[in-house]
Amino acid sequence: MLTVDGVSKRFGGLMAVDSATLSLQSGGITGLIGPNGAGKTTLFSMISGFVAPTDGRIRFEGADITAEEPHRRAERGIGRTFQIVQPFAGLTVCENIAVGAYLRHAKRADATAKAREVAHRVGLGAELDRPAGGLTVAGRKRLELARALATEPKLLLLDEVLAGLNPSEIRDIIPVIRGIRDEGVTILMIEHVMQAVMNLCERVYVLAQGRMIAEGPPAVVCADTRVIEAYLGHGAAARLKAEGAAHG
């Protein structure tokens, strides 16, 4: 469904993403993990069209979308959330979500109905008429999710929707994400909360210093020497193994 082929992004002297390759089949949840500054969000921005790659190609459902504007990609069915939440602060929750719903519903009544339905699904049903600027952090994260969902995407890019939430809030939102997958939406999520990654993702890609260093089922990837060293530093994997043997 989505093919990212050797995509690079250079910011001046910094290679933020270095010929990263990724491919998603339709359906399921795929994770994108990696240490801070690995280039995950830059990769997301290239897939959603906000940042133009220096090199490489991006294909969605067979079409080359490398040079397409963000709104065209949204029309094709790529939805995204922002790591730093971007609510339309002056509008109510319902109006915020309706902006997304207007993509596929031209009439106000239809868009509002869709917005209400989505709001109930992500647990914002009680906040519909509140100004978005007055929501809690958890509320704003749900709003990001709701707005993207209202565009009825085929592929949903979630950029740390769980960051900043407490454990009980995370517990509440995980079934929501699973529900979205069960409806047939393909999900690619950047996530630091490993408990959620292990829980939700069928496959995981690991990005470190702009390079894709591993891919596979989460349990396998987390035991990978290169992944452990990317997070914990050179030699950490051997040390952990030695400690494990000593305690075992």
Binding site: F50, H71, A148
Partner: peptide
């Protein structure tokens, strides 16, 4: 104010990047 055009216009006013991500041709 009551139309799709208006909703998209206000969305662009409030946050242009978020509007683009939702399919608005700003």
């Amino acid at each position: 104010q009551r139309s799709r055009f208006g909703a998209q216009l206000v969305a662009v006013r409030e946050n242009e990047d978020a509007a683009k991500a939702l399919g608005v041709n700003s």
